[in-house]
Design a binder for these strands. Structure first.
Length: 269
DNA sequence: ATAGGCGCCTGTAAGC
DNA sequence: TGCTTACAGGCGCCTA
């Protein structure tokens, strides 16, 4: 497969974070946090020691996800939030490089590693739009929300306050699937567009979750057990020069949310 | 309220 | 071959 240099991008989005969530919950639920250690912090401030100290001795009751955030729920109503940023990884049973935070639950070591330091530990949760895989995220919600918006549809899809969990990979794939150009003004989408787009978003995210996320190069996303995802083998356009549709793809540089966008000029009219 | 731009950070690869 | 530079992006923050 021919990749452009986009292949070097790593972005944990909803499917990757959901995969991490499932593994953590399966492996760690019911265990007691016995110690923690802070490494060199990420760009965002490290959580205050007092809030981490409060977790000592608490039992991990659930691992939840909201958008791209992981929320570890402990006994006593205590929570620890994690955001993987661009390059964050959770590693079970090992250290690895760039460890920002690490904790032990009854002998099992859990490391949060993040080379690029855009990740967060113990952060506040922002305002979110609906979960894209929920019934609340519907064609009518999307149409109503976007109706008066002038920004490009791709920027709106990556706005977590509109819908929570999409990043560049899945937004790109969903727009291709729905045959909508990323630069189209969101308010110009018809009801039919919104129906196709809602279905496309749910489809690509569900497939991403099913395949355990996407790993677009050797050192990119890996799950907490070190396993790559499978969605990269199913991408239609992301990271490619020619789409699965057989057409040469177009890349626009920094015109949408300051980011590169990719689309098929033939299929996405 | 919304849209757009900047900067944080560092691994990678293109360019010289 | 080795060094330099541009680039990628989620998100918060700033400005108009």
């Amino acid at each position: 497969m021919v990749y452009t240099r986009l292949e070097t991008i790593r972005m944990p989005e909803l499917p990757e974070v959901e995969t991490v969530r499932r593994i953590l919950e399966e492996r760690l639920k019911g265990l007691k946090l016995t110690s923690y250690e802070l490494g060199r912090p990420t760009f965002y401030r490290a959580p205050p020691k007092a809030s981490l100290d409060a977790l000592l001795g608490a039992t991990l009751e659930a691992v939840r996800r909201r958008g791209k955030y992981l929320i570890l729920s402990f006994s006593g109503g205590k929570e620890l939030t994690l955001h993987l940023g661009m390059s964050g990884r959770i590693v079970l049973g090992g250290k690895g490089p760039h460890t920002r935070f690490q904790f032990t639950v009854e002998g099992q070591v859990v490391s949060f590693n993040d080379a690029r330091r855009f990740g967060r530990v113990g952060c506040e949760l922002p305002e979110f739009g609906p979960e894209p895989l929920s019934a609340e995220f519907s064609p009518s919600y999307l149409f109503k929300t976007l109706r008066k918006r002038k920004a490009p549809i791709k920027a709106m899809l990556m706005d977590q306050a509109i819908v929570a969990g999409l990043g560049n990979i899945y937004a790109t794939e969903a727009l291709f699937e729905a045959r909508i150009r990323p630069g189209k003004a969101a308010g110009a989408l018809s009801r039919a567009d919104c129906e196709r787009l809602t279905a496309a978003i749910k489809k690509v995210l569900a497939l991403g979750v099913e395949l355990g996320g996407s790993t677009l190069e050797d050192s990119a996303y890996l799950d907490p057990l070190g396993r790559p995802g499978g969605f990269q083998d199913r991408v239609a356009i992301y990271g490619r020069k020619t789409g699965l549709c057989g057409h040469a793809l177009k890349a626009t540089r920094k015109t949408i949310s300051g980011r590169t966008s990719l689309y098929c000029p033939v299929c996405q009219q």
